[in-house]
Amino acid sequence: MAETTNISTQPSQETTRRSEPEITLSPPVDICETDEGITLLADLPGVPRDGLNLRVEGNTLLIEANAHLDVPEGIQPLFADVRSTCYRRGFTLSNELDTGNIDASLQNGVLILRIPKRAELKPRKIEVQVH
């Protein structure tokens, strides 16, 4: 009996496929480190400020973003290099990074993250004393 109900309410195959999570893109990044901290640049074309979701979970930095594009009604695709509007990428961080003070800016579709090192853990120059 219950089975019959299930079958009747089952969505068509097409609907099922559409509700599957969209493909996500892994944005290309540049990452470099200085004595002050780590700088990360990520290409996120089409992402407005409110489309960006940055968070730190445990020691993982997660970048999630949704691109927005003006697409006229009734457009037919002819060619597409980019086949999703969702970006996602994660990085594990290490202890010496101060995750509470990450500075983020988004400009022209490029995300710049500056992750400072904890002050007490910045490398110190050790002077060699010459007698």
């Binding site: 074309p45 697409v71 006229p72 009604e73 009734g74 457009i75 037919q76 695709p77 002819l78 060619f79 597409a80 290099d81 980019v82």
Partner: peptide, 11 residues
């Protein structure tokens, strides 16, 4: 990367 689409009026 490039995406191209068309409507009856424009590309």
């Amino acid at each position: 990367a490039v995406n191209v689409g068309a409507t009856p009026d424009n590309i």
